[in-house]
């Protein structure tokens, strides 16, 4: 769980909650790193890097190794001696991997847009508008956080089935389209904007919609991008829910399709490796492109779990 609050304004960010680099200016002597410490730190960083990234590289390497190459060799080779892309083609021949990717993308797009629209509207109303029942509604959103999603997954399936959406992609996307956590994130983000700004806008005759579009939204872009990133990752990576909803192999999302692939063709690790890379690479690209928004949120002291 991640809670993100936008800073009231960049200028108000307290300097001590910022990056270590920003702090270093204040107390230079204390923070200078001795060359020896630097070497030790980099050595440890590289060690952890090998542990976290190594398995992915190994999988990438396996997916590129030629069919004639002995992947079981007792002297493991990271670099393929006969590099080839043939297994990526072979995967598409055995399972419709691009259809699965498209299915995953459809689900992710629905979930991301649903969450951005639904949670920012509700978050805005809950934090910036006065109305009867506001606290009760807020309490309801908070209460559901205690409940692990797996507990209600069966009756959620029953609900989706009653809507006639079992075994459809829309049924996979639907329950996750407005997450309670995201509503609370947006609520928090809108709340950090001073109320005087709203009052001034009301005096100037701005209606609720105008205040939402011109005052609210521009000040919560950070939180909104975090909501979007997590909604995308969550939808793209989800496995249990699509596994329960989808029965028809044509409609599988990538994760379910991969499991299907590994169950059917477990005798060829190169093929499975190629399949996992097709599922893995898009998410890495998405995250790598957007990571600065993500880490900016963290450095603003925003992620609270």
């Amino acid at each position: 769980m991640t809670v993100v609050t936008d800073p009231p304004r960049p200028a108000v960010v307290p300097s001590d909650s910022g990056t270590p680099g920003r702090r270093r200016r204040g107390s230079f002597g204390f923070n200078t790193i001795s060359p020896r410490e630097k070497v030790v730190r980099y050595a440890l960083l590289v060690l952890v890097l090998i542990i976290t990234i190594g398995p992915f590289l190994w999988q990438l390497s396996t997916s590129l190794k030629g069919s004639g190459e002995d992947i079981y060799t007792r002297i493991p080779r990271l670099l393929p001696s006969q590099p080839t892309l043939e297994h990526y083609g072979a995967v598409t021949d055995t399972i419709p991997v691009w259809d699965y990717a498209r299915n995953s993308l459809v689900v992710a797009a629905l979930v991301v847009s649903g969450n951005i629209i639904g949670s920012s509207l509700a978050g805005f109303a809950l934090s910036r508008l006065q109305f009867r029942g506001r606290r009760v509604v807020l309490g309801l959103f908070l209460a559901t956080l205690v409940l692990p999603g797996e507990v209600t997954i069966i009756s959620q399936y029953v609900t989706v089935r009653e809507f006639g959406l079992a075994n459809t992609l829309f049924g996979v996307a639907l329950p996750g389209m407005i997450g309670a956590l995201n509503v609370l994130l947006m609520y928090n983000a809108f709340r950090s904007l001073p109320i005087e700004v709203d009052q001034a806008a009301i005096v100037d005759g701005a209606n609720v919609w105008q205040r939402f579009v011109y005052i609210g939204l521009p000040s919560v872009r950070g939180t909104m991008s975090v909501v979007a990133i997590f909604a995308f990752i969550g939808a793209w990576d989800d496995f249990l829910w699509p596994l329960i909803v989808l029965t028809d192999p044509d409609k599988y999302t990538l994760t379910v399709g991969l499991q299907y692939l590994s169950g059917t063709f477990s005798n060829n690790p190169r093929l499975i490796a190629a399949g996992t890379m097709i599922a893995f690479i898009p998410i890495v690209i998405v995250f790598a492109t957007l990571q600065r928004f993500f880490f900016k949120g963290v450095e603003e002291g925003a992620v609270k779990g």
Binding site: L45, V48, L49, T52, I53, P55, F56, W58, Q59, I233, W236, D237, D238, F239, L254, T255, L258, Q259, S262, I272, A273, G275, T276, A279, F280, I283, V284, F287, A288, Q291, F295
Partner: peptide, 19 residues
Amino acid sequence: FRTAFYTPVVASAVVVALI
């Protein structure tokens, strides 16, 4: 390094389990 250490988190559990 921070981004790299976070990579296993953004990867699907299915992907990393297959790896």
